[in-house]
């Protein structure tokens, strides 16, 4: 009797498990389907782009659409600008955020706690709240339409400082004490001890910050005025304007092209991201 009900329970559990797995696969497919549609439609002739049934699998192979994208807009410039800004911003995070994190984690100086809270409150001071004065400031400084302006606006990463500081606070004092006894200065301790030991937190914050910057649309929308300085998100809207009338396939080709760098970023970044999240974690 007992065995039978245990078997039944096991069967029920397995069926339930199977059910959930199928459900998960369905959801996964739903998440993937839009990319498939974008890809297949980008290969259709312009006049078929909106024809139904919609393309889930490529049936046409109009690669010309992809060339059209490069013809109509300086797509490569868009990509380069995005890349330049995002990479510098990422480096900025690695250096400046970790410096600040070290100071907050390990150096006692007057006003430390208050300054840290103030910096953290920066998370609540959102894009739109600061956009107008930032814009006016940059306009007066003649720094509108300058990709370096975009970099400057992204160099402070309160969340990154927070995460790295967390990790640094968990590093044992003994390393520092030993180094101090050997006569090392703060910079040596920072660069030779603290940074290498906080690589997980630094990686996580850098990857996430890079991605956020890569996708930033609002700031380039405000601060960039000419075609040559546009970043990819802004460039995509230029593409829609330049080609949109009558050629959705080319627009989608542009969409696919703009996703290629993201794939590369994912392949390189996801290892750091996940390793970093599990060790550098969110322990409060």
């Amino acid at each position: 009797m007992a065995t039978k009900s245990l078997e039944a329970k096991m069967l029920g559990k397995n069926v339930g498990r199977l059910f959930l797995q199928v459900f998960l696969i369905l959801v996964g497919l739903l998440y993937f389907a839009p990319f498939l549609w974008m890809f297949s439609t980008s290969l259709r002739l312009a006049k078929d782009s909106f024809s139904l049934p919609p393309a889930l699998f490529p049936t046409a192979f109009e690669i010309g659409n992809y060339f059209e994208v490069f013809n109509k807009v300086p797509f490569f410039s868009f990509f380069l600008n995005s890349f330049k800004v995002a990479v510098v911003v990422a480096l900025g995070n690695v250096i400046f955020s970790s410096m600040a994190a070290y100071s907050f984690a390990r150096i006692r100086f007057p006003g430390r706690n208050i300054l840290f809270l103030v910096l953290l409150s920066g998370l609540m001071i959102t894009n739109q709240v600061t956009a107008i004065p930032q814009f006016i400031l940059m306009a007066k400084l003649h720094m509108i339409d300058n990709t370096w302006t975009l970099v400057l606006l992204w160099l402070v990463n309160p969340l990154g400082i927070f995460l790295i500081r967390q990790q640094m606070m968990a590093i044992s004092d003994s390393y520092e004490e030993a180094a101090l006894m050997d006569g090392a200065n703060r910079w040596w301790i920072y660069s030779r001890i603290m940074v290498p030991m906080s690589v997980p937190a630094i990686s996580v914050s850098t990857v996430l910050w890079f991605v956020a910057n890569w996708n930033d649309f609002f700031r380039p929308l405000l601060f960039i005025n000419t075609w040559e300085n546009m970043t990819l998100p802004l460039g995509m809207t230029a593409l829609t304007g330049a080609v949109g009338s009558g050629n959705y396939s080319a627009v989608l080709a542009g969409v696919m092209l703009s996703l290629l760098p993201c794939v590369v970023i994912y392949i390189f970044g996801q290892r750091y991201l996940l390793e970093g999240l599990s060790t550098g974690g969110l322990k409060q």
Partner: peptide, 26 residues
């Protein structure tokens, strides 16, 4: 104190000019 402020200087300066300042500006 010197060391502490030096390490946070880049971030602090940028924060004051580009975040706090604009907040007051708004």
């Amino acid at each position: 104190a010197i060391a502490g402020y030096l390490f946070i200087l880049p971030v602090l300066l940028l924060f004051i000019v580009l975040t706090l300042g604009p907040l007051v500006g708004t």
